[in-house]
Simulated scan of single mutants.
Amino acid sequence: MSRTETALIVGAGAGLSASLARLFASEGMQVALAARDTGKLTDLVDETGALPLKCDASRADDVKALFDRVKGSFGAPDVVVYNASGRYRAAVEDIEADKLEEALKITALGGFLVAQAAAIQMLARGSGSILVTGATASVKGLPGSTPFAMGKFALRGMAQSMARELAPKNIHVAHFVIDGGIASSRPAAVTDGGKDDRWLDPDAIAKEYLHIHRQNRSAWTWEVELRPWVEKF
């Protein structure tokens, strides 16, 4: 009998995280959802049967407790997705150091703490996938986006380094450049006929995450760039 897989989504909420939770649950996975505010996950938990867990990913003790709880409930996760981001934007002359520090803690430090904790448990088992959500700002800094780009560039560098270190140990680390707006986060992007494909469909993105997790290790991808058909390269 095959073992039931476990998925952990950190930084869970509406949009992509919700699509991932639904897809993973439909695949028969046990799903855990981590967020600073678990109250916003009530409907999603009711729909998917996921386990909601409170966690501030920028705090090492919170992350350790999160992984201990998931392991105690389901076993070590097979796939971990890091979706949390510090979305602080400001003109260069207006950037406040404390807000910048907080954004970097969420995006970069949190990503590291979660990936590290995932790697420790996956290495003990000998397999697993760590999937990290990036953005246009991961590879292209834009005006007013200095804090966001700093965090996302750091997250991408972390993922690339971990992919090279952990792949030979059967741990698949992949970074996703989400180069465009996600439809579900923009009410105007939904039309009478369904989702407007000028925006990324979160269900379509989720399928790519699952595809990367399921890849044969003889042909692993470390980075995926996803954009709607009208987005410029």
Rank of each mutant, 00 (worst) to 15 (best):
D37N: 15
A97K: 10
W199V: 04
A103R: 00
D62I: 05
G28R: 09
D56N: 12
G11L: 08
I171K: 04
T221K: 13
S185W: 04
G72P: 11
N170V: 12
L23F: 09
V114Y: 06
E27H: 14
G11E: 05
S17M: 03
V230D: 15
L131V: 12
S145K: 14
G72D: 15
A65E: 14
E96Q: 11
G134N: 00
D98T: 13
S138R: 01
W220E: 07
T107K: 05
I205R: 01
L100Y: 12
I130M: 12
G194I: 02
M158I: 03
E208P: 06
S218W: 05
Y82I: 07
D78P: 05
W199Y: 15
D196L: 08
G180P: 01
L226Y: 01
E231C: 04
N83T: 13
T221F: 11
A76G: 11
A137P: 00
M162D: 09
L210S: 01
A90M: 10
E93S: 14
G134T: 00
D37Q: 10
I9E: 00
T4V: 14
L66W: 00
Y82N: 06
G49P: 05
A189R: 06
R69Q: 15
E27P: 00
G75K: 02
G180R: 04
P228W: 09
A35I: 02
F176G: 01
I171N: 01
K71P: 03
A204H: 14
F74R: 07
L66E: 01
S127H: 15
A189L: 07
H211S: 14
M162F: 12
R227C: 10
Y88S: 01
D197M: 08
P168A: 10
M162W: 11
H211P: 04
A149E: 06
Q116W: 03
A21K: 05
P52V: 14
A50G: 09
H175D: 11
R214G: 08
Q116R: 13
A14S: 13
V177W: 04
R69Y: 07
G111A: 10
G86L: 08
G110N: 00
C55R: 03
A118E: 02
G110P: 05
R214C: 10
G13P: 04
N83Q: 12
L100K: 11
S138V: 01
L142H: 11
A206Y: 07
G11W: 06
V31F: 04
K140A: 12
S184F: 04
T38A: 06
L226S: 08
M122I: 09
A206V: 06
